[in-house]
């Protein structure tokens, strides 16, 4: 009875988490969902008289593998959350058809494979317990496979090192080189901080340049995308356009020329005239429409 309750609870949790893994937009959420599934499965192992596997599941999978995933996620960039808009025609439809068909076939197939009650592992685990039983098998009957696994692990470790290693093809840049590159580049000065010359210094507000134009360089892309997705755009059309531009394609490197800017100087300030300056908000907090 206890097993039944455990099963049903964990089954629901793991399936829900699996769906979450597939459908969550952010890779980090997916990773967390996978962790939930793995933990549930660890418990299910334990319930099925496999305490050793349950522990290994937690240590290896949830501990090592999941950490690796998260590390790589951080390395690759959290900003790599992808949109769920399908680009390949028909891919999603057929994927669901195939997945559903496969699930049904598999469930029907191996569901019918089991006849009669489970034998149980009481007898097998009797001699010194589960760990000893497994150890006996691994070091006798499967010792060769076990040794080969060690070779596999070493090879994998070497392979990972070789793949991830990057040969430095040029000398490491000194501070002098960096300074030179900066002055030769587009922006000798530091990039404008958000909120510069604006009525407030909220981190998601684009800076205004001295001529009054909007600097797209000052907007963080992740934050801009978040704003676009949640619909928290400023009322001011030029600011909103700048944020949308950054969210969709990244900042345009070329800034409006000064001459042009002088021609139409003070639109934004006028539009923001009535706004009482608000205090700085913490980063990432929703920005209500400007000028409210």
């Amino acid at each position: 009875m206890g097993e039944t309750i455990t099963f049903w609870v964990l089954a629901v949790v793991s399936v829900a988490a699996a769906f979450g893994l597939v459908f969550s937009r952010k890779a980090v959420y997916s990773a967390l969902m996978l962790g939930v599934v793995m933990l549930s499965l660890a418990v299910l192992y334990a319930v099925q008289d496999a305490p050793f596997l349950a522990v290994v599941q937690i240590i290896v999978y949830t501990g090592a593998v999941m950490m690796l995933f998260l590390f790589v996620l951080m390395l690759v960039g959290v900003d790599s959350s992808d949109s769920l808009v399908e680009t390949i025609k028909g891919q999603r439809f057929w994927a669901f058809v195939a997945g559903l068909g496969f699930a049904v076939l598999l469930a029907v197939g191996i569901g019918n494979a089991v006849v009669g009650d489970a034998t149980g592992l009481a007898a097998a685990n009797a001699e010194g317990g589960n760990v000893q039983g497994l150890a006996k098998l691994i070091f006798t009957r499967y010792v060769f496979a076990f040794e080969v696994t060690s070779a596999l692990l070493i090879t994998a470790a070497l392979g990972a090192m070789v793949l991830a290693h990057r040969e430095r093809s040029e000398p490491k840049a000194t501070q002098k080189d960096l300074a030179r590159a900066r002055f030769l580049g587009d922006h000798p000065t530091p990039l404008p901080g958000p909120g510069t010359y604006a009525r407030h210094n909220a981190i998601d507000m684009p800076a205004l340049l001295p001529d009054g134009s909007v600097s797209e360089l000052s907007v963080n892309r992740v934050i801009a995308r978040h704003d676009v997705e949640t619909g928290r755009l400023p009322e001011n059309a030029r600011l909103a356009a700048a944020i949308r531009q950054v969210a969709a394609h990244g900042p345009r490197t070329e800034q409006p020329k000064v001459v042009q800017a002088v021609a139409e100087p003070a639109e934004v300030p006028v539009a923001a005239e009535d706004d009482p300056p608000t205090a700085a908000r913490p980063a990432g907090t929703p920005v209500e429409e400007e000028g409210k």
């Binding site: 097993e3 039944t4 099963f7 089954a11 793991s14 399936v15 699996a18 769906f19 893994l21 597939v22 890779a27 997916s30 990773a31 599934v37 299910l44 099925q48 995933f69 790589v72 996620l73 690759v76 790599s80 959350s81 992808d82 399908e86 680009t87 891919q91 999603r92 057929w94 994927a95 669901f96 195939a98 997945g99 559903l100 496969f102 699930a103 598999l106 469930a107 191996i110 569901g111 494979a113 089991v114 489970a118």
Partner: peptide, 28 residues
């Protein structure tokens, strides 16, 4: 009881398969 586990297994496998087909992020 075993059948329950097997069906759960099949379900998780299929969901994983769909995820492989649907998601574009290599890590996912």
């Amino acid at each position: 009881m075993t059948t329950h586990y097997l069906v759960l297994s099949a379900l998780l496998f299929a969901i994983g398969g769909i995820g492989v087909l649907v998601r574009r992020n290599a890590i996912v």
